[in-house]
Amino acid sequence: MTTTSQTQERTEPGERRSWLREHSELGVCVLLLALGVLVLTDALTMDVDIAQRGPIGPKTVPIVVGIGLLVIAALLAVDVLRGGRGQAETGEDIDLSEPADWRTVLLLAGVFLATAVLIEPLGFPLAGALLFWGAAFALGSRRIDRDPLIAAGLSLLTYVVFNNLLGVPLPGGPLMGVL
């Protein structure tokens, strides 16, 4: 992936693994291919019994997009095998010299999913505060005295602004029932 400069014995499986690692972008081609097949299957199995208006029905554009996906998957595969590489995005807080920190990404995704599950039973103020605190924790913040307070304040303020000022309803949950 990003950096793989370990000195490993040049065994057959090791070589294959490092080749795959080097060409991990082929995974993108596989996904594009799968997406293309999905779109085409959906389009071709559509039974258009509804009266069609105009010469182009609801199938045409999906078929074009599906074929486009297949073609692009093939073109990208050729490009990768020829040595083309997508430039990983850079940014001011991004350090590409280190390998990717998958633990943080998984933790963040987990925290986010947990929020999705909790938002209705707990209400937005609590679930939102847990999301902020959890995400800050996953990203390396360890201020037990400060983090929960900021999380609670931000979440409560957002709830009031959206729910009461902008008129966008958010679930209050049991906490707002008490207050």
Binding site: L108, A116, A135, G140, S141, L170
Partner: peptide, 22 residues
Amino acid sequence: PYLYAGILFFAAVGAYAVGGEV
């Protein structure tokens, strides 16, 4: 950590506000 936690937080608010759907 606060900056990126805040981005995730507001993203969740925005998506939920669309229709109140989990």
